[in-house]
Design a protein around this nucleic acid. Structure first.
Length: 273
DNA sequence: GTTGCCTTTCCTGTTT
DNA sequence: AAAACAGGAAAGGCAA
């Protein structure tokens, strides 16, 4: 496997995305929604702390629970530790959200195993989608690719049920129709400062104000995610401006490259309180 | 095949 | 002067 192209951006990213992203053989190759190829680590038992964190964000997001409702620090652990928690442990760690989390992780453990069998050989994108939690297992260096993916999509309040799991190859991926939305992509870069090589930074964390530091670099990453090599900040920003109307973003007047999350943007708030 | 959502692309004009 | 910002308009891609 090799890096398909070697733009400045890519070399920058592969080197600056953080010391713990040593996936030299996993360049930023991803084609649109088929980027969720990383099933080899689809089993939560093997998740890193970061992946655990990501899973948390998604479950909260999916269930429309404000992340500040639970002490995320209680989940400062890797997948192995997470999987060893009992139902009661989840209750202790997350209160009323505990059961939801427990349920989710139970499903994932289950389907992770299942998936391994499926995926012995080379996994094709189609197969990846069969993973109920496809994006969770991407390599750490690719946070911008998948932070927000579709957690197991559900219409019901409690997303992960054994039923869903069993028929995951069909249902589960349906929800987040087109994968991560732009604002989620932006949010997820912001939420991962350790892996965000100076692309975007918070201006006011509690108010949700942030600023693009490398607008074109972000645009390129977005384009990469969408398999669109001609993405530019100009075009990306047009999409951002459409968010004003939907109140996913609020205008910040007079400050270039500065945006603010609006009432309809979820999952960006600081979790601890 | 149609529809709706979410961009993407292009463009003209304005502001910083 | 260059880079951003503002939006309108239309097209594209995708899933339901």
């Amino acid at each position: 496997m090799s890096v398909t192209s070697s733009t400045n951006l890519e070399s920058q990213l592969t080197t600056t995305w953080g010391p713990n992203n040593s996936y030299p053989d996993v360049p930023l190759v991803m084609s649109g929604y088929t980027s969720r190829l990383w099933t080899r680590e689809s089993q939560p038992q093997f998740w890193s702390k970061y992946q655990v964190w990501e899973w948390l964000q998604q479950v909260m997001d999916m269930n429309q629970i404000d992340a500040s409702n639970i002490p995320l620090q209680n989940f400062d652990m890797d997948g192995h530790q997470l999987c060893s928690l009992s139902y009661q442990d989840f209750i202790r760690a997350a209160g009323s959200v505990g059961p939801i989390l427990f349920h989710s992780i139970t499903d994932l453990k289950w389907s992770g195993q299942y998936h391994v069998d499926l995926g012995q050989q080379e996994l094709k994108p189609e197969l990846d989608f069969s993973c109920p939690f496809p994006d969770v297992s991407y390599p750490p260096g690719e946070i911008y690719d998948s932070l927000t993916h579709p957690l197991a999509p559900v219409a019901s309040p409690t997303p992960s049920s054994p039923d869903i799991k069993r028929s995951f190859s069909h249902q589960v991926k349906k929800h987040n129709p087109r994968g991560t939305h732009l604002w989620e992509f932006i949010r997820d870069i912001l939420l991962n400062p350790e892996r965000n090589p100076g692309l975007i930074k918070w201006e006011d964390r509690t108010e949700g104000v942030f600023r693009f530091l490398k607008s074109e670099a972000v645009a390129q990453l977005w384009g990469k995610k969408k398999n669109n090599s001609s993405m530019t900040y100009e075009k990306l920003s047009r999409a951002m401006r459409y968010y004003y109307k939907r109140e996913i973003l609020e205008r910040v007047d007079g400050r270039r490259l500065v945006y603010k999350f609006g009432r309809n943007a979820r999952g960006w708030r600081e979790s601890d309180k």
